[in-house]
């Protein structure tokens, strides 16, 4: 089991935003979908730091990312 970020897609889609993507320390991990205009997480690369949650919830007050536990293979 490990800890990763998960974007609530329908909430994020309201904003056309992308700010969290620009602050993730990991490359090719927190991505942005061109046509759906939502952020999404490549779980196997996420290290669970929650900097993206700070950006979305604390700075922007949008609350569209949560940290979740996943099991290998999820």
């Amino acid at each position: 089991m490990y800890y990763v970020a998960d974007v609530k897609e329908s909430d994020c889609a309201k904003y056309n935003c992308k700010q969290c993507v620009l602050f993730c320390p990991e490359p090719n991990t927190l991505m942005y979908h061109d046509s759906k205009h939502v952020a999404w997480v490549n779980y196997s690369r996420c290290k669970g730091c929650a900097i993206c949650v700070y950006v979305c919830s604390d700075l922007l007050k949008r609350n569209c990312i949560e940290m979740v536990m996943v099991t290998t293979g999820d």
Binding site: V21, L22, C24, P27, N28, L30, M31, R45
Partner: peptide, 10 residues
């Protein structure tokens, strides 16, 4: 960022 393949890897 987040919309192209980055030079740096895991």
């Amino acid at each position: 960022l987040g919309q192209f393949k980055e030079l740096v890897e895991e």
